[in-house]
Amino acid sequence: MFMQGGDTIRALKVIVDATGYDLRQARDIVYALIYDIEVPRRS
């Protein structure tokens, strides 16, 4: 929802809060969604 509005900062916060990922991992997910590539998985 936030990605459609271009609010990437808010999308990052939602991902971090929901998953417990650090900021770098959340940023990778956001960019994967923006550029329509495979979303990285937690290792």
Rank of each mutant, 00 (worst) to 15 (best):
A11L: 08
V30T: 06
M1D: 06
R10Y: 04
S43R: 09
R10M: 08
P40D: 05
I34P: 00
Y31K: 14
R10C: 03
F2I: 01
D17K: 11
L23T: 09
P40A: 01
R27G: 11
R24Q: 07
D28S: 04
V14E: 14
M1C: 06
V16A: 14
L23E: 12
L33M: 15
A18Q: 15
F2Y: 11
A32V: 04
V16Q: 15
I34F: 10
A32L: 02
R41N: 11
G6P: 03
V30H: 05
Y35T: 01
M3S: 04
G6R: 14
D17F: 07
R10I: 05
Q25A: 14
V16K: 15
I29M: 12
M3A: 03
A26R: 07
R10P: 01
V30Q: 02
D7A: 10
R27V: 08
T19W: 09
R24I: 08
I15V: 15
M1I: 04
A18R: 14
Y21S: 06
P40L: 02
P40V: 05
L12T: 01
K13A: 12
D36R: 11
D7L: 10
Q25C: 09
F2T: 02
V30G: 03
R42D: 02
A18M: 15
F2M: 10
A11Y: 00
P40T: 06
M1A: 12
T8A: 15
I34K: 14
I15G: 00
L23Y: 09
Y21H: 01
